[in-house]
Structures are given as structure tokens and as C-alpha cells.
Amino acid sequence: MYADLIHFFTTHWLGQAIVILAECLAVTVPLLVAVAYMTYADRKIWASIQLRRGPNVVGPFGLLQPFADGLKLLLKETIVPSSANTVLFLIAPMITFMTALIAWAVVPFADGWVIADINVGILYLFAISSLGVYGIIIAGWASNSKYAFLGALRSAAQMVSYEVSIGFVLVTVLLCVGSLNLSKIVLAQTGWFWNWYWLPLLPMFVIFFISALAETNRTPFDLPMSEAELVQGFQTEYSSMPFALFFLGEYANMILLSAMGSILFLGGWMSPIPYAPFTYVPGVVWFALKIAMLLFVFSWTKGTLPRYRYDQLMRLGWKVFLPISLGWLVLTAAVLQFGGWVPGK
């Protein structure tokens, strides 16, 4: 009976389809719960920074607040402006949300815990994260509104600029690993926490994190939706569920970039101390803790820093990060080559 079941799920096409569906749900559902509680954590952290209490009314400690908000958005009326391009207007939030979700297919949560362990995993992540900009730019154009359009243009320019330096950071890590597979990238960082790539590649880690802020349109780079100039940027005309999809997509993207950061620089599912009591903790817990740590820095930055000026943002991307990351890439390559540390020859 048991053997029959295993046979069914591993060989029969229906069984395999059920397994794939279950895997997708096993990633998506916790991810959406994480997104919900990320909004809660964000608000609590900002509240603490500003000496407030934050959400504390709905449920114990306000823990049900995200669900109350979700329900509220769900029940509101979806307003499509009469001069908007209806089809594109509604497709845009879906694109943002979908790209934020499909990227998780290649993320390894623990040793062997990955839906698709593809050879070019890191390129896939990079490709998907560069697609996120379409949701925003299409939203801005389809809304047929000045503020939305200006926000979209800013966002497009900003994301394309910072992707360049993220690309160089990725290449630097790849040089040290010798593979594009995400699981292999994590396995290459086996050992104590100072063996993880954050220390040898510290400048790259800093550049990656700052570029991740720009890539997700978060403070201090949230110019696409800076409320003082552009109302709410590309989201201005959105309400109800389309708005909620943008919101969820944005937070899922933040979690995704934090996951990327922990895989590339913080040893993914590895425990910081490679000895007994710490290695009993499941890898997925360490992974979640590392993501949570990076997400905390996201919120902390938002509570602390003022917004950049747009020309400063562009200068930072093109004139500071690009030369530094390119230089560090050449340096890493030279060190690996002449130090005889080139992996996987």
C-alpha cells in the first residue's frame, strides 16, 4: 500500500502533478503569511523608532492587523479611471505579484529543499527580479495620470541603473563559487560564519544591500512613490485588490532580495557555528532568521534615513557603485587567478 503510493507519486503523471502543486503551495502559502507579518513587523519597527506603539488593537498585540487590512482591501471597490487603459491597468499589478512569486521556484530553503534545482539558478533570479519593473512602468502608463507616469519613469530608470551593479556583484560571487547553481553557492560557504562571503566580499555585500533597497523602491530610494512630489507615484490611481497586489508584490520582492542576500553572502541555510547543538536546528530556520535580519535592516533604514534626491540617486548608481563593483570584480578575478584559488577547474 505504502509502496504503491510512493510509486504513484513518483512515476504516474497525475501523481507528479500533485507533488509539484503541493510543492508550490508549500512555498507560496508560508511566503504570503510572511508577507502579511512583514507588514506588521514593519509598522511595529517604525512605531518603535518614532516612540509610538504601532498596531495593537486587532487581536493580541495587534497580531491580526495584517488580515484585517487584507480583508478591508478585498471588500473595497475596484476603481478603474475612465481614461485609463483598462486591460493594461489591471494586468500591471498581476505582473508585479507574479514575478515576485515565481522567483521562489529556485530558492533553496535547506539542503535539497528546492522546487527547481536548475543550473543557472542565480541567472534566473536576476532575470526575474529585472522583470519586476514592467509591472510598475505599465501601471504608470496605463493609469493615464501625470503622477503615475512620472513615478513609473523614475522607477524604470532607477531599477535599470541598479541592476547593473547587482549584476557585477553576482558575477563576483560566481567567480568565487564556480557555479551558477544556488545550492552550490550555499555549499561553497560551508564552515564558520566568517567563511561566508559577507566578510571576504564585504564591499560587494554593502553594494548589494543598497542596490536591493533601490531595486525594491524602498527608502531612501523610494522616489517613484515619493508622496511629497508624486502623491503615491505609480500607485496613485490604484485601489482595492489591484493596490493590494502591488503591495504584496513589493513586500514579496523585499523578502526575495533578502533571501538572495542571505544565499549569496550569509551562507543560506548554514548554521553560523558548524558544531553540535547549532547544526541540529533545521536549515530552513537559519535561512528564515537570516532573511528576517536583513528585513529588519530594510525597516530600520526606512525609519531612519531621509529620501535621496533623484540626481544623487543616479550618481550613486552609475558613478560610485558601478566603478567600485567593476573594480572589485577585476580584483577578485586577479586574486583567484594568481592565488591559484580558481574553483572547479
Partner: peptide, 18 residues
């Protein structure tokens, strides 16, 4: 395939659209 998506969809087409 991935390079096609990164370069053409992720960068070139964004600037076209822009």
C-alpha cells in the same frame, strides 16, 4: 535563454518602452 531575458527583456525592452 536566461541571458536573452536579462539583456533584452530586462534592459533593452525597458528602455524601448521608456
Amino acid at each position: 535563454a536566461m541571458i536573452l531575458v536579462i539583456v533584452y527583456v530586462g534592459a533593452v525592452a525597458v528602455l524601448f518602452l521608456f
